[in-house]
Structures are given as structure tokens and as C-alpha cells.
Design a protein around this nucleic acid. Structure first.
Lengths: 171, 171
DNA sequence: GCTAAGCTTCAATATTTTTTGGAAGAAGTT
DNA sequence: AACTTCTTCCAAAAAATATTGAAGCTTAGC
């Protein structure tokens, strides 16, 4: 009986890791990185590199690289246990924090560079009819992007509780 | 002088196509697909397959596949010119419509399947301590995902003008 | 300063994703 | 029906990405 439940738990974990991995690959995140994240998300305690390698059957190098990347994204934290040299890793469990970090990072790495490109482009153009048409379209995109930028900025700065309570209900 | 402006226009277009392409590849969209989209976005008039192939230097098959995919996403529309057999393609220019379509598609293809997986998983679990911990984490993720789902649902159903006016200012 | 545990790096390799080009299909014209 | 013009499909090739494994590095403890 207990044995049977344990099999289910294992299956459940497996399923979640697979699903999260698949999700990641549609979002420009490597499957493995998303799986490491999933594994840590559903692990109540911090795991060491060895354990992650073993669970996901990946090499040391691979594990290391993906863990670093997750730390860079602010989705995973390093944890040191007194008297041990090994590093342990623990995922941020608060889903709003997770999404918030992702928004912050992607805004910085993608939206902001795009805004700069749009600025450059608008600056350059200006006389013939074709230029005007192009310029008009770019201005439109710029306007939208700026709105998106400031909305995201405010979103990430707002308090999680307020957000979940007031804001989500309101729409 | 006019010649010089034309060069700038060309450069501007080039830059935009490159930037949009790079953006796409961080979002699980192939670079070429994003470039086709960019090219159509900044083109005041609809373009035929030939023109797209020529501008982006891609093969017929590649152009075709990516155009179809963009149509599936609802980002590009087919346009037939009376008396011509060729098909022309025109991008949706309203950025809110663009984003709206993307949200609708990704919600359907990613968020909803994930919700189903989360349901399956919660159903299975239940006795030992480990199961309980796992279950608790999954429930948390499910709660958040459901909230995200209904928020996106409402977002995509709301009117663009109201959204841009009231909502964005409010936060 | 030496050793050993553990972390990092990176060139080689494997895998996945994209692209191509051509053959087959569809549809309008003579 | 044969011809033309364009679209679609798909297997092979190319390109891009991810993964491995082992060498090298770092640091704590002796």
C-alpha cells in the first residue's frame, strides 16, 4: 500500500518535471534548465549537485551550467550547510517571486534593448513617402512597447499581496 | 540626398528585422519566422512569397512554412488580389491585437495543458509525509496558474481601448 | 605547502531544430 | 487535356544548441 503510494509520488514528480521541461522549451529556456528548476521546485529541501545529476541523469558539467544559469535568473539560491563543503540549491517557491524575477530579467534583456533599437530607428528616418510610412509604423510599435515597459515596471514593483488580492480581482 | 535617405530607410528596416528576429528566438519562435513577421509588420502593403524570399534570402519552402505558421498564430492574413493568382500576405498592425493573439495561442497550447497535468498530479497523491509535501507545493503552483489563467482570459476578452486607457494608467 | 573534495570550464560530441531544393499537388487558362 | 503559375510537402543537409567528460582550478583542513 505504502509502496503503491510511493510509486505514485515518483510518477507525479516525473510528470511534473517533464511538463515543466516542455514548457521551458517553448520559452527559450533549455529543457534541462527547466527540469532542474522543476526538480528543485518540488523538493522540500535543498539538493546538492550530485543529487540533481542522479535524478535527472545528466552530467556534472551540464548540471553545473544550468544551476548557475538558474541562480543568475534569481530562481534558485545557493545554500551552504555548516561543516560541509558541498553546495546545496534551493528554488524560490513563491510563484509570484518566480514570475516577478522572470519579468525583470526578460524586460532588461529583451524589451529594453528593443526600445533602444526603436529609438535609433526613429531618429534616422524622415523625408520621402516610404520613410514616413515606415516611421509611422515604428512609432506605433514604440508607443506600445513603452506602455508595456512601464506597465511591467509597475507590476514588478507592486506588492505581491496587493497584486493577488485587489488587482487580479479587478479586471 | 534622396539616395542617402533611402539608404537610411533600408538600414532602418534591416535593423528592425534583425532585432525582431533576435527577440523571437528568445521566445521559442524561430528567428526566420520572427523576421518574416517583422518584414510584414513594417511593410505598408501586402507582400507575396517571392518578395519575402528575396528580402530575407530564404528558400521557398522555408518562406512558405513560416508564413503558414504566422497565419496559424493569427498574426498574418492572406490577401488575394483580383485578377492575380499569387497570394499576398499582410501582418496585423495593431500591436494590441498581435499581443492578444499571442496570449490566446500560448494560453491554449501551454498554460491549459499544464493545468491539466497539475490536476492529474494532485489527484494521484495523498498519504505519506513526502506525498503531502509534494502535494502542497503542487497545489500552490496550481493556485497561481489558475489565477494567471483567469487573468489572461479576462485580459484577452477586454476591449483594447478600455485596456490601454483605464487599466494601464491605473496600476 | 600538500591533499582531497568539490566546483568550473571548454573542446569534442551528440542532439535538436531549421533550412533547402525538388517533386508532387492544385487550380486557373488556352 | 496540356500548360502555366503558384503552393505544399518532405527527406536530406546544414546550422544551431545542448551535453558530456575530463582537465584544471579553488579552497578547507591537515
Amino acid at each position: 500500500m505504502v509502496e503503491e503510494e510511493k510509486i505514485d509520488l515518483k510518477e507525479g514528480k516525473e510528470k511534473f518535471i517533464q511538463a515543466w521541461g516542455a514548457l521551458g522549451s517553448n520559452w527559450g529556456v533549455s529543457r534541462t534548465m527547466a527540469q532542474v528548476h522543476a526538480l528543485l521546485l518540488i523538493s522540500p529541501k535543498a539538493l546538492c549537485a550530485e543529487k540533481i545529476m542522479e535524478e535527472l541523469k545528466i552530467s556534472r558539467g551540464n548540471a553545473n551550467m544550468n544551476i548557475r544559469a538558474l541562480i543568475d535568473w534569481g530562481l534558485v539560491h545557493k545554500e551552504l550547510h555548516p561543516g560541509e563543503r558541498k553546495e546545496y540549491f534551493r528554488a524560490e517557491k513563491d510563484m509570484w517571486e518566480v514570475v516577478r524575477n522572470i519579468i525583470i530579467q526578460r524586460k532588461k534583456k529583451e524589451l529594453e534593448p528593443m526600445l533602444r533599437v526603436l529609438d535609433e530607428i526613429t531618429a534616422v528616418e524622415g523625408v520621402c513617402e516610404q520613410s514616413d510610412e515606415f516611421c509611422k509604423i515604428i512609432k506605433d510599435i514604440k508607443l506600445f512597447s513603452n506602455k508595456a515597459d512601464s506597465t511591467l515596471e509597475k507590476l514588478t514593483k507592486s506588492d505581491a499581496n496587493w497584486l493577488m488580492g485587489t488587482f487580479f480581482k479587478m479586471i
